[in-house]
Design a binder for these strands. Structure first.
Lengths: 136, 136
DNA sequence: TATAAAACCTCTAGTGACTAGAGGTTCAAG
DNA sequence: CTTGAACCTCTAGTCACTAGAGGTTTTATA
């Protein structure tokens, strides 16, 4: 089984070194073995876990959600249902965010278009954004 | 012109009271007048600005970006071309954000649907998340 | 007009998810 | 054996708030 220094692990996973140490500190990564001189030594279990965490983070899961998913990994019993629930809830959040941003993009597009017609002095960007939030 | 206490302003804008004070502290809101007894008194200028800020925040702009947009407003009469450029850049940012979120949603959808066919006991959700990040 | 309760004030500290820097130690190549 | 890269711990900073303590002002009612 391969053994990695923190720098090697960082390179493989594209995760910064302080972030790896931070994950260990908050029990997202299992505590690493140490060398004679007290430097961290990782194995493939750490590598797999870190890939999992970074993938989840890239998908926008919070570390708390990731902690739940990790827990579900280790106790397989009812894991799929709950994991499905977490992922589905997150998906709904993302879809909602997309809808909101599309509304804004439409607004901005209108503004930019109107401004490019040679009437930039009438730019309405702030007026458009002045009204209260549409959603919620 | 109407005058509001911080509590009234909070209610109208659905913005929490400490957040309003925070915005004043970091110069996102103009400093409020004070009553005899040192309590903040707001007017419609503050109301308008706060609505603007909350709208932008709801749409994912950072406070720094909002600061720029505010600056853009006061500048636009004097530098319409520059203002247009800034507005357009913001539009591009938003479009890019939408693209990223759509990629993310597609992947989440895949994750969620891997076990939606009534066979959740075979759910691959946790395995799917083990592979390294797809994008970047 | 007195009082009580609601609303306000400032200040400090905490959140999540890192990131940066100081100052010191260990490892590996030549 | 030396030197420089990589590592160590610890503290503090980032963003955008949020919570709580402890005290003051405003306002509604008796």
């Amino acid at each position: 089984m391969a053994i990695y220094s923190i720098g090697q692990l960082a390179k493989i996973t594209s995760c910064k070194i302080p972030t790896i140490r931070y994950y260990e500190e908050i029990d997202i990564l299992p505590v690493a073995e140490r060398s004679e001189g007290n430097q961290r030594r990782y194995n493939d279990v750490h590598l797999q876990r870190l890939n999992f965490v970074r993938h989840c983070r890239a998908l926008g899961f919070s570390l708390e959600e990731i902690r739940q998913l990790i827990h579900l990994q280790t106790c397989q019993q009812h894991a799929p249902y709950e994991a499905h629930e977490i992922a589905n809830k997150h998906l709904q959040d993302v879809l909602q965010k997309i809808t909101q941003l599309q509304l804004l993009a439409a607004e901005l597009l209108e503004v930019v278009h109107c401004c490019s017609e040679g009437e930039r002095h009438k730019c309405q960007i702030l007026n458009v954004l002045n009204k209260p939030c549409a959603n919620k």
